[in-house]
Design a protein around this nucleic acid. Structure first.
Lengths: 154, 154
DNA sequence: TATTGTTATACTCTATAACTATA
DNA sequence: TATAGTTATAGAGTATAACAATA
C-alpha cells in the first residue's frame, strides 16, 4: 500500500505530442501490442508475418527485393528467411538465369498459415479497441499512406 | 550494368497497406531517418532526447514514472539515464521521504542542449519533406493523439 | 568490377528474472 | 510484503564490413 499520498504523478508531455516521430512511435507500440496478443501464440513476429504476406502476394520475388521494400537489412533478412524455411513456411529457389539470387515462395503450410491469420494481421478490430472510429481509421491509413508513399490505392 | 532486362521488380503490398501496424512501422522508419540526420551528430538517439525533453517539462519526476509514460522498460531506463548522467545532462536526486526512488532533473548543459535542439526534434519540416501539407500533418497528429490517448490538447 | 546473398561482429533495444534497499 | 531501482542474461533488430559466388 502506498504511504505518501502522491496520487500517481502525472507527466506533462508538452509539445512532444506535436512530434510526428514521437507520436508514431507511441502509436506503433500500442498497435503492436494487439498484434502480439494474437500472433505470439504462433511464435510469429510482425516482421516475419509481413514477409510471409509479401511472398504470398508476390511469389517468386527475390529475397533482396523484398528486404529493400520492407526496409529490412540484408543480414537480418538472411536470418529471418532461415527461420521461415526452418518452420517449413518458405521455399528458396535459385534460378538458372542468375544463380546469385534467391527467389522465395510459400510452401503449402506457409500459404495455409497466412490465410488463417490474415484477419488477425490486418488488425481489423484494432482500431475499435483503440479509440478510433472506422472513418478515422481509414483517414489515418490514408495519411500514413501519403506520408510513406505506399498508399497507392488513393 | 544489368544484364537481364528486368526493370527493377515491383512489389505488390496488397492489403498490407490496410494494416495499421505495418503502416505505422513504415511511417516511423521514414520519420526517424530525418531525426537521425539531425541529431546523430550529437550522439543522441530519439529515446534519449525524448527523456531529456520530458525531464525538462517535468523536473523532479521519478525515473520510473517517466519510464512508464514513455513505455521504456526499467532495465533499459537505468542504462539510458546513466548515459545521460555521464554526458552531464541529467542530475539524479534521492529524496529524503522515499529513499528508494530517484528524481531526475536537467543540469544547465542539459537544459541548454534541449533548448538548442528543440526545433530539430519537433520535426518542424519533416512533414513538408515527407509529402504532407501542414493541414494533413495536423490531422495526422490529431488522429495519432486520439489513437494513443496522448493528444490531450484536443 | 559490380551485384546477390552470406557470415561475422558489435551495439541497441527488449524481455525476464533475481537482487538491494527501502517502505 | 510490496515497491523503486539495479544488475545480469539472453534474444531480436540494426549497422557495418568482409567475403564467396556469380554476373
Amino acid at each position: 500500500m502506498k504511504d505518501t499520498a502522491e496520487p500517481e504523478e502525472s507527466v506533462d508531455l508538452g509539445a512532444l505530442t506535436g512530434s510526428l516521430g514521437f507520436m508514431l512511435r507511441m502509436a506503433q507500440l500500442q498497435v503492436f501490442d494487439l498484434f502480439f496478443q494474437r500472433l505470439a501464440a504462433h511464435d510469429m513476429k510482425p516482421g516475419e508475418f509481413t514477409v510471409l504476406w509479401v511472398i504470398a502476394e508476390n511469389p517468386g520475388l527475390r529475397q533482396g527485393t523484398i528486404a529493400r521494400e520492407l526496409r529490412i537489412k540484408p543480414a537480418h533478412m538472411t536470418k529471418l528467411i532461415r527461420r521461415m524455411v526452418a518452420a517449413g513456411f518458405v521455399a528458396r529457389t535459385v534460378p538458372e538465369n542468375d544463380r546469385r539470387s534467391v527467389r522465395l515462395s510459400l510452401t503449402a503450410p506457409g500459404a495455409a498459415f497466412v490465410e488463417k491469420n490474415r484477419g488477425a494481421f490486418l488488425d481489423l478490430h484494432a482500431a475499435e479497441r483503440a479509440r478510433l472510429s472506422d472513418g478515422e481509421t481509414a483517414q489515418l491509413l490514408a495519411l500514413l499512406g501519403k506520408l510513406t508513399g505506399l498508399g497507392s490505392k488513393t
